[in-house]
Design a protein around this nucleic acid. Structure first.
Lengths: 250, 250
DNA sequence: GTCTATAACACGATAGAC
DNA sequence: GTCTATCGTGTTATAGAC
């Protein structure tokens, strides 16, 4: 399979053969069913039937049901960045920029809240390629981190140099934490998560400012050294690791 | 079912009827198979066969396969506390006490590292009663938080009053974070997680000390207020919520 | 109340024919 | 590329035996 990667066509090859059309059709059907019926109710049989293809054909294009979620993530990520970047023009205050970034995300994922648990269960599996920490997720993860880099870079708020380099990754982690909270948030309209962002963001920015204090500086340097050591920016991804069968082990 | 709760007998009723013996036997067999073969390979059919009972009988005592994991958690928690408390006698330095607490846990869960992903996938589901944040997990969670309270209380290190009340819960959260890292840690012997504890604990204790700084104090108070508001110590658990069917929804 | 035996269901996933 | 048939799984149901 030269141009495909775990069933996903290389981004640079948008040829619209018949196969590509079938693939897109199955995917669109699956995403619609996910949203309308939930992940569990949208069985592969249902997806295939609704798309007018056989189960085997669906598996021909998507290695597993989980791989259909990958497309969902990509769609979410793209929609989030587009919405947030549009709203960020002209905004220079770091707290405000961060608030816009996180709030936009909550807005984009809101329709999926009822079924977030199903998606999350899959994503939380460390063996799943869908885990946000997996090697297969590296491209999406790095794109998200780059997004937070632009959130930081576009701000006029002064940031201690030692922190600046690591801040995008830390904010992405914070973002993951907000999502974790959101997934568990059963309050109507997920208003507690909204409150977490509203009150948490100024706090985070205040903490960033505190990094300048003489006493704090040493601890910060230690923390950054620790993060650098335990979260290597580019884990040694052998090329074959990306091409390896991404199906769940066992 | 008066004395049982989701198939688990009330802790205060250790009567050793024949049923209890069967139950323990099934459980012990399941845990052994989990450890030796992994969660996925240890099918319900295999557990029942190995225990010499019928599948129906296994389901008579355990509502679902996931519920077998609940017993695993309880066993882990108990072993951890026993090991850690024994090692903590005479230790007064907070950093050292915290290090012992976290290292002991890593030691206890080590045999399960290969299959941690399977367990974790189940526990990560917010709808699962096995989630560490679920209402059903409240007793185990509170016991764990009480454990961290003794870790804090037994130390001679001075802790800012504002922080002291929330510290056990925060340390439990930190603990959850360590486990999250451990589950994803593929380094031999999970040595990166060990490094995280070794270098992270002094850092955390240093940060606790920094809470005294005048500039930090305000941010800390904000943070604690936020935590109190968004992580209510006792979420309104209606009694029926505990008795409600704990099977996964749908 | 405890337990067996067996069949059946729907699911994710696969094999192999066309 | 696409299909039908089939597998193994968690789980449930039935119908009873001690």
């Amino acid at each position: 399979m030269p141009a495909t990667l775990g069933g996903v066509p290389a981004p640079s090859a948008p040829r619209s053969t018949r196969g590509e059309q079938t693939r897109s059709h199955i995917l669109a059907t699956a995403l619609r069913l996910f949203r309308d019926e939930g992940y569990d109710a949208a069985t592969m049989r249902a997806v295939a039937a609704e798309a007018g293809v056989s189960v085997g054909n669906a598996y021909y294009y998507f290695e597993s049901k989980d791989h259909l979620i990958q497309a969902y993530y990509e769609e979410i990520g793209k929609a989030h960045r587009e919405l947030a970047l549009a709203r960020l023009t002209g905004v220079r205050d770091l707290a405000e920029r961060l608030r816009v970034a996180l709030d936009s995300h909550l807005e984009v994922i809101e329709p999926y809240h009822a079924f977030a648990g199903s998606f999350f269960r899959v994503a939380a599996d460390p063996r799943s390629p869908l885990s946000p920490f997996s090697a297969e997720s590296a491209p999406a993860r790095e794109e998200a981190i780059r997004f937070f880099a632009t959130v930081v870079d576009g701000s006029s708020t002064r940031i201690p140099a030692a922190l600046r380099a690591e801040l995008p990754r830390l904010l992405w982690l914070l973002h993951m934490g907000v999502v974790l909270y959101w997934v568990h948030d059963r309050s109507p309209g997920a208003r507690r998560t909204a409150e977490l962002v509203e009150r948490g963001v100024p706090l985070v920015v205040k903490l960033i400012g505190l990094a300048r204090l003489p006493g704090v500086r040493g601890a910060l340097d230690d923390a950054i050294a620790l993060i650098r050591s335990l979260m290597p920016p580019e884990p040694p991804i052998a090329p074959e690791a990306v091409r390896a069968p991404s199906r769940l082990l066992r």
